[in-house]
């Protein structure tokens, strides 16, 4: 094992508080990534690094009903990842520092990663 990677699952409304704790601890935002685990169920991982100690916050959302709050008012650079998550997965994220409004990536297919797995892209 190279390193342990604890993952804390937080609810949508607690997300920003949890991120603020990370900010206060001077953690670096490593990445925000989304995974489609089932139809209507998407995991979003917020990865942080505190002096080479990796940790993860995870929220589970349903893009049809949930609206994810942006953390770019805490970590400014988060807007890059959030735009990406929005463009690739079609998840609504509210309050991004710079909202590219779906034009972050120029793609032939809208929200390609929301398509069922194994399906041809275009």
């Amino acid at each position: 094992m190279i390193e342990s990677q604890p993952t804390e699952i937080v609810t949508l409304d607690r997300l920003k508080d949890a991120v603020r704790i990370k900010w206060a601890a001077h953690a670096r935002l490593v990445q925000i990534g989304c995974t489609k685990t089932a139809e209507d169920q998407y995991e979003i991982n917020y990865s942080f690094d505190e002096n080479l100690k990796f940790s993860n916050l995870r929220i589970v959302v349903n893009p049809a009903t949930d609206r994810v709050p942006s953390i770019s008012d805490i970590y400014w650079n988060a807007f890059f990842y959030e735009n990406e998550v929005h463009d690739l997965f079609g998840i609504t994220i509210e309050g991004m520092a710079i909202d590219f409004k779906g034009n972050f990536y120029r793609m032939a297919v809208k929200h390609p990663f929301a398509a069922p797995a194994g399906q041809k892209k275009s």
Binding site: F100, R106, K121
Partner: peptide
């Protein structure tokens, strides 16, 4: 900035 000219998927 704007990127996304060569997204390859």
């Amino acid at each position: 900035p704007s990127i996304g000219f060569i997204h390859r998927g």
